[in-house]
Design a binder for these strands. Structure first.
Length: 226
DNA sequence: GAGTGATCATTA
DNA sequence: TAATGATCACTC
């Protein structure tokens, strides 16, 4: 059995661990943990994220909590091209379609999840073998006033529609930076939600995602200021 | 090529 | 079933 890496006690310690991985290949990182590198991610879509969680000492599991509960930090890998451009949108959290709570931005899952994030860029293209992709320099991030305001605007628009029972007419085109997309095992997956008339109906589970243009701007700011 | 909608694995 | 980790794959 593999040993478990103890959670970092401080953000500084987490930063040290993350920086120690910068420049390393995923094959090297996986070898540290005695983990095999899959030929492709077709059936292991979350492999990179779970590998990094394992090596950094994040709490394993799929609980609705930050990866580092004591530090209040969420870790996310970010696939980027060799030029540094994000290749995909980033999943934030599940959208609550059936709960009557959290209608205030500051208390929302999105706001709390993004309050403090450790971004770990993974450099490579789709055709780059998984093991040859390189871990980039970590970025500890919190949204600035501008970013927070933009996210809040998008979140409020989407949340308002959910509350009005109009989830069925939301598609991924809404939202400047934050979008709502299907997030289930497949298109057949169902969850309970309320329609316009307050009747319980079944619909697709959804999740909030950050558009690539948002993370691209974020990296650009960091690059220019750093 | 970008972006949306679909999908895969695992754990609680 | 619902949450986590995301990328795949098809359409435009």
């Amino acid at each position: 059995m593999r040993t478990v890496v103890a959670p970092p006690a401080t953000e500084g310690e987490l930063s040290e661990r993350a920086n120690a991985l910068a420049g390393r290949s995923l094959a090297w990182v996986a070898d540290q943990r005695g983990i095999e590198v899959p030929a492709n991610l077709k059936r292991d879509k979350g492999w990179i994220g779970q590998l990094l969680e394992s090596v950094l000492g994040a709490t394993a599991g799929s609980r609705a909590q930050p990866d580092f509960p004591q530090l209040g930090i969420e870790m996310k890998t970010l696939p980027v091209s060799p030029l540094g451009a994000p290749r995909q949108s980033t999943y934030v959290c599940t959208a609550p379609l059936n709960s009557s709570v959290g209608t205030v931005w500051k208390e929302s899952w999105v706001c709390r999840k993004l309050a403090r994030v450790l971004w770990v860029p993974i450099v490579g293209n789709t055709d780059t073998p998984v093991g040859e992709r390189i871990v980039g320099g970590p970025l500890f991030w919190s949204p600035d006033a501008e970013e927070a305001a933009a996210l809040q605007t998008d979140w409020e628009e989407l949340t308002d529609l959910i509350e009005r029972g109009e989830v069925w007419q939301i598609d991924a085109k809404r939202g400047q930076y934050l979008q709502l997309r299907p997030k289930g095992a497949n298109s057949e997956a169902l969850v309970w939600t309320l329609d316009e008339e307050g009747e319980w109906v079944r619909d697709m589970p959804r999740g909030f995602y950050l558009r690539a243009r948002f993370t691209a701007q974020m990296l650009k700011k960091h690059f220019l200021l750093g």
